[in-house]
Amino acid sequence: MTGTITVMRREYASYFRTAAGWVVMALFLVLAGAVFRYFVLQPGQPASMRPFFAMTWGVLLFLAPAISMKTFSEELRTGTIEPLLTAPVSETGVVVGKYLAAVLYLCTMLAPTLVYAAVLSGLSAPDYGAMVAGYLGVLLLGMLYLAAGVLASAATQSQPLAFLGPLFGFLALEVLRSVAVSRFPRWAADVVLAVAPGLRIQDFAKGVIDTRHVVFFLAGTAWFLAATTLLVQARRWR
């Protein structure tokens, strides 16, 4: 556990020791601010953060792999993975530590947007349930995307590949989802609809927290993390 926390602390701090970490955060907050100003904070509009959440879910598709791409790829490329994996820390500890750091960075990035919620409550009476559901949706979706990104990062030394892999993977899944019902046989459409996160997230936007969806996101995250651990272990045995 100590090892996991140590890895997490170093990894989290590393996001703020490079310009990229600050730039990604700044770009997201500028975009979020613009969406809030021009789509939420409009006279006559309902006091809802739905436009902000819709934007965030779309942006997460790009943002999450940008956060996770360096977790393992960078260590594999520079060779720092060697002193790390010869320290008395298990592979699971290393994977979980790096993953938690990425989630923590995402949370840090989202934290300033709580100001929008505060502004909205000052001006009007928003539906707090929908707000909580929206943030939970962002967090769960981000956790899933980040876990997939960490797996991609552990699979390659190339950060561009670790970025593009999950991005195009999930993008392809969403494209397939949009055509599945009309073009695919029933069973194939069912599979695509079951694994594509895009459809499930829409319920959160409506303020509905469906435990099936929560379980789906958590199970998907756990699956990607387990696969990453196996991949890191397999690298040793190759």
């Binding site: 100590t2 090892g3 140590t6 890895v7 602390r9 170093r10 590393s14 020791r17 490079t18 520079t78 060779g79 720092t80 060697e82 002193p83 790390l84 320290a87 008395p88 820390v89």
Partner: peptide, 19 residues
């Protein structure tokens, strides 16, 4: 192989925690 963005004492502290 080392982490270029870390300071020397920061890195030694990190390795100490790992150990």
């Amino acid at each position: 192989p080392l982490y270029p963005e870390m300071s020397v004492e920061g890195y030694l502290d990190y390795r100490g925690r790992l150990m």
